[in-house]
Amino acid sequence: MQLIIDSSGNARCIYDETIPLQQLGRIKIRRGSHVEPIPGGRWIADMEPVDGPVLGPFSMRSQALAAERRWLEKHWLPQG
């Protein structure tokens, strides 16, 4: 898990349960994307909540989730 802390003490990360974030203080969680099925049984990762593109389509949901995480780590997380 990458935890980015800026000079004002605010932290950002891609949420998972590796670190119990509530122990660090007040947290604000917001959606980074919408991983959704599309017609034909395929999946997309719509990154609109963070002003990103639609990724996919993918044949499996796990592929869409992996692409979502990679995109967030590259384009959203370091931008602070």
Results as ranks from 00 to 15, higher is better:
M1T: 13
M1N: 08
Q2D: 15
Q2H: 15
Q2M: 13
L3G: 01
L3M: 07
L3R: 08
I5K: 09
S7Q: 15
S7V: 13
S8W: 13
S8V: 11
S8E: 14
S8T: 15
G9L: 09
G9N: 06
N10D: 15
N10C: 09
A11R: 01
A11H: 07
A11N: 00
R12F: 06
R12V: 05
R12A: 10
I14W: 08
I14N: 03
I14Q: 01
Y15T: 07
D16E: 08
D16L: 04
T18A: 14
T18H: 12
I19Q: 06
P20R: 11
L21N: 05
Q22V: 10
Q23Y: 14
Q23S: 14
L24G: 03
L24D: 03
G25F: 00
G25Y: 00
G25L: 01
G25V: 00
R26Y: 10
R26N: 11
R26K: 14
R26L: 11
I27Q: 10
I27S: 10
I27G: 02
K28R: 13
I29L: 12
I29H: 01
R30Y: 14
R30G: 12
R31W: 08
G32T: 03
G32V: 00
H34Q: 13
H34M: 12
V35Q: 00
E36C: 12
E36D: 15
P37R: 01
I38G: 03
P39A: 10
G40W: 06
G41H: 06
G41V: 05
R42N: 11
W43T: 00
W43I: 03
W43A: 01
W43V: 00
W43N: 00
I44Q: 05
A45C: 06
D46T: 07
D46H: 09
M47I: 03
M47C: 05
M47H: 02
P49S: 07
P49A: 07
V50T: 12
V50P: 04
V50H: 12
V50G: 03
V50Q: 11
V50K: 05
V50M: 09
D51F: 10
G52M: 06
G52D: 05
G52E: 03
P53F: 03
V54N: 00
L55K: 01
G56M: 02
G56A: 05
P57I: 02
S59P: 09
S59N: 15
S59F: 12
S59W: 11
S59Y: 08
S59C: 09
S59V: 11
S59G: 09
M60P: 02
M60N: 13
M60R: 15
M60I: 07
R61W: 08
S62P: 04
S62N: 14
S62L: 11
S62H: 12
S62W: 10
A64E: 01
L65I: 08
L65F: 09
A66E: 13
A66L: 09
A67G: 05
A67Y: 01
A67M: 07
E68T: 04
E68V: 07
R69L: 06
R69H: 04
R69T: 02
R70F: 05
W71V: 05
W71L: 02
W71K: 04
L72W: 04
L72N: 04
E73V: 11
E73I: 11
K74C: 14
K74L: 12
K74N: 15
H75I: 07
W76E: 07
W76D: 06
L77S: 11
L77E: 07
P78C: 10
Q79C: 09
